[in-house]
Write a protein that binds this DNA or RNA. Sequence first.
DNA 1: GTGAAAGCGCTAACAT
DNA 2: ATGTTAGCGCTTTCAC
Lengths: 344, 344
Amino acid sequence: MIPPRNADHRRPLTLRDVSEACGVSEMTVSRVLRNREDVSPATREKVLASARALGYVPNKIAGGLASQQVNLVAVIVPSLSNMVFPEVLGGISAALEDSGLQPVFGVTQYSVEKEENVLYEMLSWRPTGVILAGLEHTDAARAMLENAGIPIIEIMDSDGEPIDSVVGISHRGAGRQMAEAIVKAGYRKIGFLGTKMTDDHRARKRLEGLTEGLAEHGIELVDTEFYSGGSALKKGRELTEAILTRNPDLDFLYYSNDMIGAGGLLYCLEKGYDIPGKLGLAGFNGTDFLDGLPMKLATIDACRREIGEKAANIIAGKGYDDGVIGGHRIELTPRLDPGDTIRR
Amino acid sequence: MIPPRNADHRRPLTLRDVSEACGVSEMTVSRVLRNREDVSPATREKVLASARALGYVPNKIAGGLASQQVNLVAVIVPSLSNMVFPEVLGGISAALEDSGLQPVFGVTQYSVEKEENVLYEMLSWRPTGVILAGLEHTDAARAMLENAGIPIIEIMDSDGEPIDSVVGISHRGAGRQMAEAIVKAGYRKIGFLGTKMTDDHRARKRLEGLTEGLAEHGIELVDTEFYSGGSALKKGRELTEAILTRNPDLDFLYYSNDMIGAGGLLYCLEKGYDIPGKLGLAGFNGTDFLDGLPMKLATIDACRREIGEKAANIIAGKGYDDGVIGGHRIELTPRLDPGDTIRR
DNA sequence: GTGAAAGCGCTAACAT
DNA sequence: ATGTTAGCGCTTTCAC
C-alpha cells in the first residue's frame, strides 16, 4: 500500500491567516474576497496576492451562517439513468450559470419516502429555493415545503395543484393529443406499452389521457403491456413481440417512452411490418439522441431543457420583473412530431 | 398573477424553539436529533414530538460550523448528457447510501478551467472528500486538491500519477486490448471514428493505445474521422458513410463510444455490409442500454458503476480496514465483449 | 476606505 | 442523563 500522501490534518486556512499575511484587517480581506466595491485598489491587490499565494479557499459554512444566505438551489429528481432528467438538470445549470446560485442535485428513485428524506437533508442546508419533479409528495414533505419560506418549483407536470409554483406540461393533455393524432390518422386498434407505473405518475397520466381521448371517439384500448428494469431497447422488442403475438390485428402501438418505442420500431422493421401503413408507432419525450434510427419515431416533446431553464429562472428572479417569486404557473405546450411512424 | 403563497419571511425555526416547546435544554434536543444514545427514552420522545409538531428542520450550516465536519462528498464530472457519468454517480450514491455521507455533483463540460471553478466552489463547503474524473487539472486546481487535507479520488483513468487516490481503468490499455483483438481476428485495414478530443483525454488515450497496439503488429491506422455535438447515433452514421466512401477497402471501424458505434452499425446493416465477415466494428463503454440493436456491438466495459462504488467506499472508509484513507491505487480490468461484430 | 465588536445556530468539552 | 459555557469562521453593523 502506497502511504497516504494527503492525510495531513493541517488546519484549513482562515480569513485570519490571510489577514496576517497581508497586514489588512479580516474585515477588509472579507470585503475583497466578496468582490465588494468599497476597497481601495491597492489593498485589493495586496489581499488577492496573499490569498492566492496561501491558497486560501473561503469557508461558506461560516459565511452562510453569518450572512444567513446560502446560494444553493436544491434540485430533486426521480432518476439520473433516464436521460430525461439529465436534460432538465442541464437546463437548470445553464440558467443558473451567472446568477451566483449553485444547483445541488438529489435523487429519489421514484419513491416519495426517499423524496421526503432527500428533501429534509437538502432543506437543512437552507437553500435559496427548491426545484422538484412532480406534484405528488408525502404529507410530511408537503408540510416541509410549505413551511420552508423559500420558492418551491414543482416541475415536469402541470396536472394538479402546486404548493407554490409549477413549470411543466400536462401529461394527460399529451396523452389526449396523441389519441387525437392516432384517430385522425385512421388507426383503430390501439395497444399501450410502458413501465409498471405505480410511482411514475406522469406515465400514468399520459395513459389516462390517451384512454380518455380514445373514448371520446368510441375507441377502447385493445391491450396493454408493462415492464420494469432492464435495457429499454430490448424490453421494447420483447413487449412488442408479446403484444403483437396476442393481438395480431393491432394497428397502433403507443409506448410510454421513446427508448422502448425505438426497440419496438427495430423489432417491427425486422419482422417486415408495414410502418406506418398497417402499423403505427409512437413514443414520448422527444429524445433527440435517437435521431439516426432507420425511421424517425413519432413522439411528443417533453420540453425537458426548457422546463429546467424556466424553473431556474423563477428562483434566480430572472425574466420575472414583477418582483414576485412565488405562485407562478407555467404550462408549456408540447409539440407532437409525427416522424415517419404515423401515416398522414 | 396568482399572489405568492410562499413568500412569508418567517424566521426559520431554531433549536431554541424546540427546546422551549418541550422544556428540555437545547443541548439535549441537539443530542436527540443527532440520534445519540445518551438520552433517556422519555425525553427523546418528548423532544421528537415537539420537533415534529413544529416542523423543525436542523440547520446544517450552523451544525457544520460548530462540529467542523460536513457530511458532503464533492463529485465532479465532465458531463451528464453522456450516460457514462450518470452511471458513475449511481454507483457513488449507492455506495454512500448508509454512510451518512451525501454526494454533491458538479459538472465541468470537459473544461479544466470550469473544473477549477467548480472545485473552488465545492471546497468552500468543506466536504469530507472529493471524487473527480480524470488526472488532468489546472495547476491551481491541483494545488487546491493537494492542500485540501481531505481524501481526493481521481476516477475513470489510471494512466498517470494521481494526486492522492485513483480508481479507474487504463484507457491506453483498453486501446491496446482492442488492437490485439482486431489483429487476432484478422482485420488489417483499420479506421478510427470519434469525438474531437482536445479535452477528452480518455478518448485520446484509447486512440493512442490502439495506435501503439497496431504498430506492434506493423499496422498503421488507415484513416480517422472526428465529430463534435449533435445526436451521436446520427453522427455515427455520417462519420461511417464519410470514412467508408473515402476508404472502401477498410475492414474494421473502431468508434470512441458505443453510441456512434451503434449509428455506424445501423448504417452498415442498411447498406448491406457483411458484418463481421468483411467489416468489423467496435465501440467503447459497455453501454448496456444498447442491448436490443439488431446485432450486439463489440465493446469494452468501462466499469462505470464499479468505479463509482469503489471511489465512494474509499471516502466512506468501507472495505478498507487498514484504516488508511489516502493513497489508494485501484486499477480495474475492463472486459472486452466481442459481441456479434468481430469475427472469431 | 478601514476596523472593532457582536453574533449567526449549532456542538465539543466539560460540569453536574 | 442533562445542563452550561465557549467558540466554530465568517459577515453585519456601526464607528472612525
